[in-house]
Write a protein that binds this DNA or RNA. Structure first.
Lengths: 136, 136
DNA sequence: CATAAGGCTTCCAGTCACTGGAAGGTCAAG
DNA sequence: CTTGACCTTCCAGTGACTGGAAGCCTTATG
């Protein structure tokens, strides 16, 4: 399989697949013409990577997950630990963004948003808070 | 004021302040010794930037907001537009993360997480879904 | 057989917003 | 005079790609 084929199969851009080779996530063999030749297992790995990345795992986490995946003697506890940590990070991020959202909503609601210059958003950013948002 | 002073005052690392000068967000004058000399207005700008960044605005948005802030003839509608767009992005991001979170929670819950090798998380990542998560 | 289109190769640079570190100049205190 | 804290510039690295240039390879058509 050429890179275009696995690209279509995995949904990953060819550029990304080359990058994954650069950082050692796949190791396709090379044909006589210098083209990468992807095995079915390579294609499978790329699909695994695509799915893992789409769930927000970092490249290093993906590397770890893939090595666990390919280790017959893994313990599922190790996998769960990686996923649980990632889940915690996401939960934290959500909380953080919700706080931002609340602050911004208050500000945006308060701003009349017409052609006049006075603006509670700028007032807040400048630090002249009228007790608006206790952010951070 | 030296860079250390405005750093303490604004909460921004000195490195960041130098970077902001590089990209033209502040323009402190220089003393005879080559040190940056920050005016009260510079300090104010940095505080504005720190607050804007902490609300998640990009550098380019901060630049825009600051130019609006310093424009007596601005219309608050322009400010509101920037903030509202940012708010939309954040809302979208939250939805996205909540979907990720739900998927990961399902997977993590299903994984017994012990020393045995079988693991629904890896099964999902590998694409052998047992109708688990319709993510993406 | 020539050629054109499309696919493949490598390499370099850019993204965003910093951050770390090296090498060296300046200043205030003891 | 020395120490240590502060300041300077410059270069490189982060994460995970992405864009683009220059050039080789393959396949289909005239």
């Amino acid at each position: 399989m050429n890179i275009g084929d696995v690209s279509r199969a995995s949904g990953l851009p060819a550029k990304t697949i080359r990058y994954y080779e650069d950082i050692g996530l796949v190791r396709p063999v090379r044909g006589d013409n210098g083209y990468r030749d992807f095995s079915a297992q390579d294609a499978h790995r790329l699909a695994f990577l695509g799915r893992s990345r789409s769930l927000g795992f970092s490249i290093e986490e993906c590397r770890r997950l893939m090595s666990l995946y390919e280790d017959r003697d893994r313990s599922s506890g190790d996998v769960k630990a990686v996923a649980a940590e990632h889940l915690d990070r996401i939960s934290e991020k959500i909380v953080e963004l919700q706080s931002l959202k609340a602050t911004l909503e208050t500000l945006v609601t308060r701003c009349h948003g017409d052609e006049r210059p006075d603006c509670p958003i700028l007032d807040d950013l400048a630090g002249q808070q009228d007790e608006t948002a206790p952010h951070r």
